[in-house]
Structure formats: structure tokens, C-alpha cells
Design a binder for these strands. Structure first.
Lengths: 131, 131
DNA sequence: ACTACTGTACTGTCACGATAGTACACAAAT
DNA sequence: ATTTGTGTACTATCGTGACAGTACAGTAGT
């Protein structure tokens, strides 16, 4: 099974946090469905070239969020209400990050026009990359 | 002289980095002009309620970037070519952060439409806050 | 001269994220 | 039964950002 997510080590965002997000994103978009299992600690660690402990911590967080629950000796499976939960979490997360950028942009005294131009071109670019 | 910048301690971005940015933003927008002095280490530290060492580190960075240079026993003054430099740095910085968010949004499988809607509403909100 | 400022340079200490390595209880496949 | 793979829980080490505290050379105003 090829893996769908990516880690950005120099992002400011802690790696373990990025892992929990990526898993939640995968659930939100239906790539992993309730009842299915998420990749194992060691496999994910190997695949992402990070430490198993870091993945384990991410998994602990996912359990705290009730997104996932353990089956002893077997692995972690996606819980029932998880998809809905992950979807709302996803939009809230993206929105918050968006707010942060706009907040800094506004704080930097950048012109509304210039900012709008930036947003538009970058949004178009991101759409292009998506194809 | 009232201070114009703000620090967000739980931002992921290191505080010293935030300070250098804020100073560069102030120069970019003309709040501080070449030849003028920037606030002192201790004053800025007191005003922002952070450690003087942290401010000192930010100032060291500003010197490395040739945005500012010291006048012995007196303080730091804004260098000649600084404004241009800070303006381009500012747009580059905002653009990069914008790209990061869009990258994560795209990575989260969020719909183009939903993303566009988010961007628009948040941009409008940020404009409102600006008045 | 004295005082009150500048920047700059240290030494420690602390929290946190990430790493390495080890160990244990359990389940599944052979 | 043995082996392999689950999650989970430790300990220890490292780098970094931020803090506290101290010290020193230089300038400006008095």
C-alpha cells in the first residue's frame, strides 16, 4: 500500500502533529474509512523516515481525540464517528492557519490590493499543482 | 513612542524571528526610515514582555541581513538600502507562508470550491479587522 | 567625573521536540 | 510452540528556543 502523506521537517509544526493531521486528513477525505486500520507505528515510521516514538505519540493523540481505537495485538482502527469529526477538524485547522497568515499580512502593513493579488496568484498556482 | 508590534508566543515561529520580522515590516512600510534608530534592546524587551537576550538575537540577525548597523554606545540605525530590501523580504515571506497553507490545504484533499470559499470569507474578515 | 543609557558577550537553566534503544503483553500465522 | 507483528512504556541523549543573571566597552547628558 503506497503512502499518501508527506512530512515537512522544517515547518515549525512538530512532526508528531503533522502525522496526526495527515491521518485525520486521510480519514476526512475517505481514503481510510471507519472500521479500517491505519498503518502500523513501525511501518509508518519507516515510510516517513522518522522515529517510531514520534509516530507512537501521534497515535496516542489520535486516540485522545477518539478518532481511532486500539485492537490489542493487532493495530488501530478508525472509530465510527471519525469521518465527520475529521472533516470539521480539517476545515477548522485550515481556516486557523489561513487566519494566521492574513493576520501577519495585515500586521505587515501590506496593501489590501497587493495581498489580494498575492492570494489570487498563489491560489491559481496551487490549483495547477493539483492536476 | 508607542510600539506598533505584537508577539504571538504560541505561533510555532520563534519569538526572535518574529521580532526581526516586525522590525523589517516597520521599515518596509516606512514607519521607521533609513537613518533613524530602532528601539533599544531593553526597551523593546520590556515593551514586548520578552527576554532581552531574545531581542538581542533578533538584532544580531538584522545586522547579518544588513538591514541595520550599530553606532557604538548609542544604538542601531536603519541602513540605507534597507527599505527596498525589507519590502521584497516582506512579500516573499507572506507569499511563502501563503504557499504553505495552500500546500497543506491541497494535501488535505479539501475541495477547490471549499478552499476558495474559506479564503474569500477570511480575507473579507481580515479587511474588516483592518478598519 | 558621574550617571544612565547603548550593544554585546558570556554562563547557566529549563522545556520541548526528536532521536536511539530496549522491553513487555498480546494477537495472528506458520 | 515459535515467530512475527501489533501497541505501549520506559530511559537516555541531543539540539534549540527562551529564560535569568551578570559583565563590559562605549557614548551622551548632566
Amino acid at each position: 500500500m503506497p503512502l499518501f502523506f508527506k512530512i515537512n521537517p522544517s515547518n515549525g509544526v512538530p512532526v508528531y502533529e503533522q502525522v496526526t493531521r495527515q491521518v485525520m486528513f486521510a480519514i476526512a477525505s475517505g481514503v481510510i474509512k471507519p472500521g479500517e486500520m491505519i498503518p502500523s507505528v513501525r511501518e509508518l515510521a519507516r515510510e516517513l523516515a522518522i522515529n517510531p516514538n514520534t509516530v507512537a505519540r501521534a497515535f496516542r493523540e489520535l486516540q485522545d481525540k477518539q478518532v481511532v481505537h486500539p485492537i490489542r495485538g493487532t493495530g488501530l482502527t478508525v472509530s465510527k464517528g471519525a469521518r465527520q469529526k475529521c472533516q470539521t477538524a480539517r476545515t477548522r485547522l485550515i481556516r486557523d492557519r489561513l487566519r494566521d497568515v492574513l493576520e501577519e499580512a495585515r500586521q505587515s502593513q501590506l496593501t489590501d490590493d497587493e495581498l489580494e493579488k498575492l492570494i489570487n496568484t498563489e491560489f491559481q498556482n496551487s490549483k495547477k499543482r493539483n492536476r
